[in-house]
Design a protein around this nucleic acid. Structure first.
Lengths: 341, 341
DNA sequence: ATGCTCTGCTAAATCAGTTTAGCGACGGGG
DNA sequence: CCCCGTCGCTAAACTGATTTAGCAGAGCAT
């Protein structure tokens, strides 16, 4: 790869100038006193030779690589990761940077290895993304450089990017209220206090807080809160069946995420109930499945692209608002309607 | 980042030897005549100083970076990408390599830029992955080095990794035959010849060929072939409704992918039919949704991790079987049963 | 004529490794 | 005693960029 590329020396020779001159011109250095003609000659030579600088050589000297490490536990390979990576890639490209991606799989040894490998390559900064764990212990090795946490927080007060789950909870509640739902709003997906899987608990707590506060402001309380050990369709299914066995049927179900909502759809379908005529369903995440179910599922979207983008911006442009909450826009679909009769 | 790391010179000094000696020892060079004691001293010094080589410096000299470019059109950010990337990451890690990931979004200018950026960084090879286009025009710039195509073929006879769609078609057909289905097997998801979206057509052709040939070997033909413009749930839904309006109801439906199958589930549910008692459904891909639907959907899994892994292996270990077909294992789930009465 | 400044440019050091060429000491054979 | 080969190791070149320090010449004032 790149066997006989032109070097800076070649460009300089062709322009009849020194490497110093060529370097300065090509880097657009201010305050150099090189003549306009010298500029022309260098540009022409570089153009003619198809010159492209050797990044390894450059970064050896400058200690900058225009490379960002994107280290995640398991994010990189979940369906949720796509958007994060895409957003980060876009923002990186706009700044002429490139992404070195690794996954630790939550394994401490892999993590250690991954971080070292990245640092060996002199990355300019690290985006540390998490899916499984929302509050992480950041490996000390990377604290020396710039770090941004993505979808995670830490005790070190590092800059981080998070979805605005609380506000999304508010939006969801407002939506149901606006449609006229009041006393028969159910929720599924609470996790029991003892099972504090940090993934669920942090997001869940924020979402729940947003929902409760907004409802409370209108004098409404959740009628039922169904627990789920995990946020998978089968748990949504079971929780919904449990809901339906109660004396009063809810007019709306808030699901803590779309996979639960999918389970709820299945249970409601089996019970012969029609969404949204008999019961409304609304949820969080905007998983692709939300647009596949019938009727489409209204849901507060996790803004993955925005988040990935924001992480790179924070890392490179470093405006020092340390925590960045990205809004979760509501995708309005047909699963919500006014309560029946 | 990495401001005061120990250098090779530091290690050498501490070991009381030259940089040359230290370099040779640490690289495990054969045929050097350095004493066992010298080896010990170098290793000890490196250990004590926490020495890690500077990759930029090394690759400046060796022109090797232990870095692989993973360039894709849109794969990197679709739900299908996760596995590809994970497999590639794993295989890369095993070989102490690292992945530089980019996405071209199918845009020629982005692609040009992406490739140049990768080559500037002296990557040791390029994995060129495609989702949208199965047969691609490979940019000439990367042909100079090692290239492996992932989920794609080209006219240049480059090494490539593909799922074994044809064989999977055979497996699906065998499965239905084994359950006793014969004359009432329907298929949905054929695309009309004129709409030759290359993504669909190449995979679809192979799958269909596998199905037809295997059925034919048992003297069976597909009863109906339903067309779909794209492979989305809504098209599966429509195609299935069309199927059900025909005089004889199929005993089994083969869907060209899981999203279509999901649409089929919806249509069958609305028609009051039970899977698999009234009708069997079987499909391709093993999208997460296949395990979420009730009953679970039997499907031939796209072996994304294996494919990603294989691509790296082909690139680095370069056994020269140029095309690598990765088997698609059948996930047996409850959606298939013997035909009703 | 001398000294000074400014202009336009360059030599050489530097980054941190790898690699080539070869040096001094020692032992053995002729 | 001299020559040669081997052993154990090192000096220096090299990779391709950036950056520091500074040089030659022109123009101007003294």
């Amino acid at each position: 790869m790149g066997r006989n590329r032109a070097t800076l020396a070649d460009v300089a020779a062709r322009a009849g100038l020194s490497k110093t001159a060529a370097s300065m011109v090509l880097n657009g250095r201010e305050g150099t006193r090189l003549s306009a003609e010298a500029h022309q000659r260098v540009f022409a030579a570089a153009e003619e030779l198809g010159y492209r600088p050797n990044i390894a050589a450059r970064s050896l000297r400058t200690r900058k690589t225009a490379t960002i490490a994107f280290v995640s536990d398991i994010v990189a390979t979940t369906r949720f990761a796509g958007g994060l990576i895409r957003g980060a890639l876009d923002a990186a490209r706009e700044r002429d940077h490139v992404l070195l991606i690794t996954e630790t799989q939550g394994d401490a040894a892999f993590e250690q290895y991954a971080i070292e490998t990245m640092l060996d390559r002199q990355v300019d900064g690290v985006i540390y993304a998490a899916m499984a764990t929302r509050r992480l212990a950041v490996p000390p090795a990377i604290l020396a450089g710039r770090v941004v946490l993505l979808n995670a927080t830490s005790s070190e007060e590092l800059p981080c990017v998070l979805p605005d789950d609380e506000r999304a909870g508010g939006t969801i509640a407002e939506t149901l209220l606006a449609y006229g739902h009041r006393d028969r709003i159910a929720l599924i997906g609470r996790n029991r206090p003892k099972e504090h899987d940090p993934e669920i608990s942090l997001a869940a707590q924020a979402r729940l807080r947003g929902i409760r506060d907004t409802l409370a402001a209108s004098g409404v309380e959740l009628a039922v809160e169904g627990f789920c050990p995990e946020w998978l369709p089968e748990h949504g299914y079971t929780a919904t069946r449990a809901l339906l066995r109660r004396p009063t049927r809810p007019s709306a179900i808030i699901c803590m995420n779309d996979r639960l909502a999918f389970g709820a759809y299945q249970a409601l379908g089996e019970a012969g109930l029609t969404i949204p005529d008999d019961i409304s369903v609304i949820s969080f995440d905007d998983d692709p499945i939300a647009s596949w179910v019938r009727p489409g599922l209204a849901t507060a979207a996790l803004p993955h692209e925005q988040m990935g983008r924001r992480a790179v911006e924070l890392l490179l442009d470093g405006d020092e608002h340390d925590a960045s909450l990205v809004p979760m826009p509501l995708r309005r679909r047909r699963s919500v309607a006014p309560p029946a009769g």
